[in-house]
């Protein structure tokens, strides 16, 4: 079975048109034309006539849940979500940033999405092993089944085996490339703090110029802030202009959180985010 992107695009258009015309949604967050086919852009449709601009193809990686927090509370939003994106929506609902009743989720069951930079299929790396959205109102197309289930954490194995000196050298090399454009922060659906800790001057947490120690502080703290919240969409590493594999570190933290607290981010509306929750019987072993 192959995914018909054209079919999904048509369904996305009809649903968007219907929602906008009936007033069920005042904005539809989907994908629009970019400067070529390989570079679609996030697109916001506000009128039924905008719907013609919506596209969907294998390069539509963007996590549209990123834009939910930009609208005032109470705005009725319809949003196109793929598997990882729907987890981001769930996580935002858990954190009370958006309300379930204000959202219409247009679920897209899909695999074979490609990274426009490398043409590489991203499934095994950053979709968390999921192909069907976890939460949706309208599913555009049939659920996909039969894909090889890969553990989302398989790619980590090589890095876990490195000894700590090699691992430090690896991360130092990667972080030293960082030019502090904050594209990772802009692309991340969970990074909505205003101001971000790194933009604060009192206290000044880290250096703002692209130097090694400031970069280390920024990235480590960002990994910590996303602990138990990162939903593994991989947008940070795809947005990165210097190709730092941020998703690896996020995955590692997510894996540890899942092992320690028994809950993966964004899988159920009823959960509370792992780090604002506790169990009296959490083991002290987690600190060793």
């Amino acid at each position: 079975m192959t995914i018909s992107f054209k079919q999904i695009e048509e369904k996305l258009k009809t649903e968007a048109k219907r929602l906008l015309e009936s007033g069920q949604a005042s904005v539809v967050l989907a994908y629009g034309k970019g400067y070529d086919e390989k570079h679609p852009m996030p697109y916001v449709a506000r009128n039924p006539s905008d719907v013609a601009n919506i596209v969907f193809n294998e390069y539509c990686n963007y996590n549209m849940a990123r834009y939910l927090v930009r609208y005032p509370a109470g705005t009725k939003i319809a949003v196109a979500v793929k598997a990882a994106d729907s987890r981001a929506v769930i996580q935002l609902i858990q954190e009370e940033k958006v309300k379930r009743e204000d959202l219409v989720l247009l679920g897209i069951p899909v695999y074979g999405m490609k990274n426009p930079k490398t043409q590489e299929i991203i499934d095994g790396k950053t979709t968390g092993g999921l192909y069907n959205p976890v939460l949706y109102d309208i599913l555009l197309g049939d659920e996909v089944h039969g894909q090889a289930i890969q553990s989302p954490y398989d790619v980590l194995a090589a890095y876990e085996l490195m000894d700590k000196e090699a691992r430090f050298a690896f991360w130092k090399k990667e972080f030293d490339k960082c030019i502090r454009c904050y594209a990772c922060r802009k692309a991340c659906p969970m990074c909505y703090c205003d101001p971000c800790f790194i933009d604060q001057n009192k206290p000044k947490w880290g250096d703002k110029s692209p130097q090694s120690h400031g970069n280390l502080m920024y990235h480590l703290t960002r990994f910590h802030h996303l602990a138990g919240r990162c939903i593994d969409c991989g947008e940070c590493s795809r947005a990165c202009p210097v190709d730092i594999p941020l998703y690896l570190f996020h995955k590692k933290v997510a894996k540890e959180c899942e092992e320690m607290f028994g809950q993966a981010a964004g899988m159920s509306i009823e959960d509370k985010p792992a780090l604002v929750n506790f169990r009296v019987d959490d083991s002290d072993k987690i600190l060793e």
Binding site: Y159, K164, E165, A166, R167, F168, A169, F170, W171, K172, L216, L220, F223, H224, A227, F249, K252, V253, E256
Partner: peptide, 8 residues
């Protein structure tokens, strides 16, 4: 865990 994975 973060300190450990970063190589400290």
């Amino acid at each position: 865990k973060i300190l450990e994975f970063s190589g400290l």
